[in-house]
Amino acid sequence: MSSDVRLPGPVPVAGAGDLPEVFTAALASVSGEAFRAAGAAEAAQRLLEAVPPDGRPWFVAERELAQALGQHLPVTWTDRTGLAECQVSLTAAEWAIADTGTVGLLLDARQPRACYLLPEVHVAVCRTNALLPTLSDALLRLGERDQLPTACVFVTGPSRTADIEKTIVIPAHGPKRLIAVLLDEI
């Protein structure tokens, strides 16, 4: 940008608080679920309690975080061709945003664009230390990359609509449930 720019810097947020707590509360307020686990084995155990497998395959993104959890799960995996029929999609979030209960996903070779939308349940795994206070923090991180992936998405809760007399209905076209897993260590 040219030098005469008088564009504002990030707007600071008052009192960010304990990020995992703020994140969990914010996600709950938009009907999302979140839990924190010390390691992948524990996370997988908690996930199985939250989402009992119903026999349909699960999609597991080819990213370290998703794979780490996936290897502890007694479910059949599917690739992206089976997305429309699978029960759960297990993705890796680059960041989680405390303020709004949001997970940020990069969509590229290892994580297809449609993966978080087609299955009934979307599970996004994020490192606890990738929790950021606001969307602006995540956008600054994203902008620091050499090149943006051709698609990325910030997800805040399961899909919803309120087009009929403002009554909130979950799901709309996307998942019925969004579960965020904060992982301390892989």
């Binding site: 969509l107 590229d108 664009r113 449609a114 996307g174």
Partner: peptide, 21 residues
């Protein structure tokens, strides 16, 4: 809402290395 459910950022068509799009 604090943020809409989905904020989608698209910066190009599917690249050779992309899985889909």
């Amino acid at each position: 809402q604090t943020l809409t459910c989905y904020t989608t950022l698209i910066s190009g068509p599917r690249q050779a290395e992309d899985a889909d799009g």
